[in-house]
Deep mutational scan, measured.
Amino acid sequence: TEEFVRLWREAVRHNQTLHWNGTDFIPGDEWAEEFARREEEKL
C-alpha cells in the first residue's frame, strides 16, 4: 500500500525496523527489500 511504502522509506532512511501487520520489515533484509520493491511497483 501507499502507506506501507511511505513508512518503509522512512524506516530505511533512519535504518529502523518497520513493524507492519505483525511483521518486522528490516532495512537490508533481502525478503523485506523484495516485498517493498513489489509494493512500490504497484503504485
Rank of each mutant, 00 (worst) to 15 (best):
P27Y: 03
H14M: 15
A32F: 02
R38Q: 13
K42L: 09
E33Y: 04
D29I: 07
H14R: 14
W31G: 05
T1A: 14
N21S: 08
E2Y: 13
H14T: 15
E33N: 06
E10D: 11
L18Q: 00
F25C: 06
W20M: 03
A36G: 06
L43K: 04
E2A: 15
V5T: 06
E39F: 13
E30Q: 13
R6H: 10
R13M: 14
T1G: 14
V12D: 01
Q16K: 15
E34H: 08
N21P: 01
G28Q: 03
N15S: 09
R37Q: 09
P27V: 04
R37A: 11
P27A: 03
A32S: 15
R13K: 15
I26R: 14
G22P: 00
L18P: 00
W20L: 05
W20D: 01
W20S: 01
L43Q: 06
D29M: 08
N21Q: 15
V12F: 04
E30H: 13
L43H: 05
L43S: 06
Q16I: 14
N15F: 07
E30K: 14
R13G: 07
R37F: 06
R38I: 10
W31Y: 08
H19Q: 09
I26V: 13
L7R: 11
D24G: 03
A11T: 03
T1W: 14
H19L: 06
N21K: 14
D29F: 05
A36Q: 01
A36V: 11
W8Y: 03
E2F: 10
R37M: 09
E41H: 10
A11D: 00
E40S: 09
R13N: 10
N21W: 11
T17M: 10
E30W: 13
I26H: 13
W31D: 06
H19E: 06
N21H: 14
E3T: 11
W8T: 00
E41T: 11
V5Q: 04
E40L: 14
A36P: 01
A11V: 02
R38A: 12
T23M: 15
P27N: 01
E10W: 11
R13S: 12
L18N: 01
T23D: 07
A11I: 03
W20P: 00
P27Q: 03
E30A: 15
A36H: 02
N15M: 08
I26M: 12
E34P: 00
L18E: 00
T23Y: 15
R37K: 12
T1P: 13
N21Y: 13
E10F: 07
I26N: 11
L18V: 06
W20A: 02
